[in-house]
């Protein structure tokens, strides 16, 4: 007992304190977030986005994030898929201009279904990028990254406080579930509809606690003399101890510039050459061939 904590609490779970990600400065990790989460916006070719998803999964494994923690997002992936493909099926657009595919007693249209697939791959790639970042970084890391990049005090502080509140919100959620369990609620015996109703019930304590806490935090900030400008209320300049405590080394700058540069390159290539267009996708060519053969 009394031994050092061996994991760090991140927004989405826990990560070992000796995770390889912690060899990099928070700025580098934020650059990775930008690369993995924003780059897919410029990529239509699903193979590339699927590749990015694989890279992200590899990074999660390398970063020693428990895969059980990642598995929790499977229902989300399924829900997004149902929603996106459902919309493409139910509201395909101008049917006369589309290629019909008759299968399992229904008529699908190739173009909207393909576009749903392209968009789904892009969205999931972005989502996994965010999962990687929030599974391996604490709210403090985000604050350090923003301050190191010279983001104005008010913006970085509000961003960090918002992330902290989200973490606390999830802690409260866990406690509230425990409290419901303590009052005889058997989650396993509930139907999906009953479980959905339960979420409306959570909002009562969750928001009440969050509002009370927000009020307390604002009073605490006021009491500590914080101002939006970041300057002490009495004038002068506040010591930026975060920058002093977490200096960005040359290696961290190299990693960050490399990642942001890679993102800029992809964005530029996408806009100027269309190299990431889905029309160049080998998978699309195969599917088009299969549709034509029917």
């Amino acid at each position: 007992m009394g031994e050092a904590q061996i994991a760090k609490k991140t927004l989405l779970g826990m990560v070992p304190a000796d995770s390889p990600f912690y060899r990099f400065h928070p700025v580098g990790r934020m650059a990775l977030l930008i690369f993995l989460s924003v780059t897919p916006l410029f990529i239509d070719m699903p193979e590339v986005n699927l590749g990015l998803i694989l890279v992200t999964l590899g990074l999660l494994w390398w970063g020693r994030v428990r895969m059980q923690q990642v598995r929790r997002y499977l229902p989300l992936l399924v829900t997004v898929a149902i929603f996106m493909f459902g919309v493409a099926f139910l509201a395909p657009g101008n049917r006369t201009a589309l290629t019909p595919i008759r299968s399992v007693g229904a008529t699908f249209y190739f173009e909207p279904m393909w576009w749903a697939f392209v968009s789904y791959c892009r969205l999931i790639a972005m989502l996994f990028g965010a999962i990687l970042y929030f599974s391996t970084n604490r709210e403090r890391d985000t604050l350090v990254a923003l301050r190191s990049l010279g983001v104005p005090f008010a913006v970085s502080y509000v961003a960090a406080l918002s992330l902290r509140s989200a973490g606390m919100f999830m802690e409260d959620f866990k406690t509230i579930r425990e409290a419901q369990q303590a009052r005889g609620l058997d989650l396993e015996s509930l139907s999906v509809v009953e479980k959905a109703k339960l979420y409306t019930m959570y909002t009562v304590p969750l928001f009440a606690v969050a509002l009370r806490r927000a009020d307390e935090i604002s009073n605490a900030l006021f009491a500590k003399g914080y101002t939006l400008s970041g300057r002490p209320a009495g004038g002068g300049r506040r010591t930026d101890y975060l920058r002093a405590q977490y200096p960005v080394r040359a290696r961290d700058w190299a990693v960050s510039v490399g990642l942001v540069g890679a993102f800029a390159l992809v964005a530029a290539l996408s806009k100027t050459t269309g190299v990431f267009s889905d029309h160049l996708s080998p998978l699309r060519a195969v599917v088009v061939g299969m549709v034509a053969a029917r």
Binding site: T175, A179, P205
Partner: peptide, 10 residues
């Protein structure tokens, strides 16, 4: 629970 607010859902 320590904080009654965590266990009042109704």
């Amino acid at each position: 629970f320590q904080n009654p607010d965590h266990q009042l859902f109704n």
